[in-house]
Nucleic acid binder design. Sequence first.
DNA 1: GTCTATATGTCGATAGAC
DNA 2: GTCTATCGACATATAGAC
Lengths: 204, 204
Amino acid sequence: MSSVKVPATRMKADERRELVLEAASRVFGERGYVGATTDAVARAAGVSQPYIVRMFGTKESLFLAVLHRALDRLMTAFRAVLAGHGPAHPSGATDIHSLLGAAYADLLADRGILLSLMQGFILGSDPVIGVHARAGFLAVYRLLREDAGFSPEEARDFFAAGMLLNTLVGIRMSADYDTDPAAREFLETALPTKVGFLLSLEGD
Amino acid sequence: MSSVKVPATRMKADERRELVLEAASRVFGERGYVGATTDAVARAAGVSQPYIVRMFGTKESLFLAVLHRALDRLMTAFRAVLAGHGPAHPSGATDIHSLLGAAYADLLADRGILLSLMQGFILGSDPVIGVHARAGFLAVYRLLREDAGFSPEEARDFFAAGMLLNTLVGIRMSADYDTDPAAREFLETALPTKVGFLLSLEGD
DNA sequence: GTCTATATGTCGATAGAC
DNA sequence: GTCTATCGACATATAGAC
């Protein structure tokens, strides 16, 4: 087993950047901001650790890039729904609530997006990351209130459902699906259309 | 300023343990599991760092103790409500939903409880902590379903509201209360009876 | 019961070659 | 655009005194 590092094939900056951000989202989502190492991100992206630092300057700005990428994906998906360009709801529902909820759950497909979002959300006490996390959170809130026409109570309940989804993914509730009836009941109640997909993500 | 370390006054093991757990809850809640250092916990508790390790063995088992303490507080508060011994609801409501919700929000008084709970919840991928976090989460779920008589949908919605509260505290949304109308509206909608208290917790 | 001193390991970041 | 080598800071855990 020769684990000699072969130089990664040259790539344009933008492509490599997106590739690294995707890897970083998964790593930050799994281990959290502090727990994730730039070395783990580098290995996940197939490049060297100093190159990660070279590209993003610091671990902190790498995380900020990951956070903003996640927020961009979220806002883009929501705007597509509001413009009538979003995917159909699995149950056939056509109301905005259901469609936005489904769009949010669909972000699960891009592993790490919701998890790194959530990691950012609990870093509110960090003087730099906290500012960005709150700004992003509130931007989504405004989109719901102003563009989607939600009432404050509807927006609150929508966010509550979203935070529950984030938490269920973060706690890896699907790991107990087969062995604990309560876990199974909870998952079937909270995200009936996504349980199968969650279970297919075995081993992080 | 002589910062020479004076030996902490001798104390019985149980008292010191509770004192350390309270300090550790705050530190873990603010910085997360990985971000918190045993040294920061030690300083917050007024003892030396090696003594923390001596008491709990490892940082991991210290966190597990913090997690279980938080779950104990939660379950105890809920059982008191169910036994009719809980505090009254600030709005005068007497239904179980409102009373349990108020009991949950009251845990905010013990700084760090809800935050370290949430920290545990997003550590599901950790092979040790994840197991304890899921077990605790599901124990609360069973209490709601079996002892409080909630339907699966009611339990889901109750948890959703709880996870939203945890997230709002974690992201320090109250930091934007005065400067961002959206933050203000959200906080007033999501936890009308607790905004004042949250704002009084200036500076973590 | 509690401390000081320190070994050991790890991580982010820099220097510099190709 | 990408790598290897390495420095310096910090954190957990151990050893052992009081």
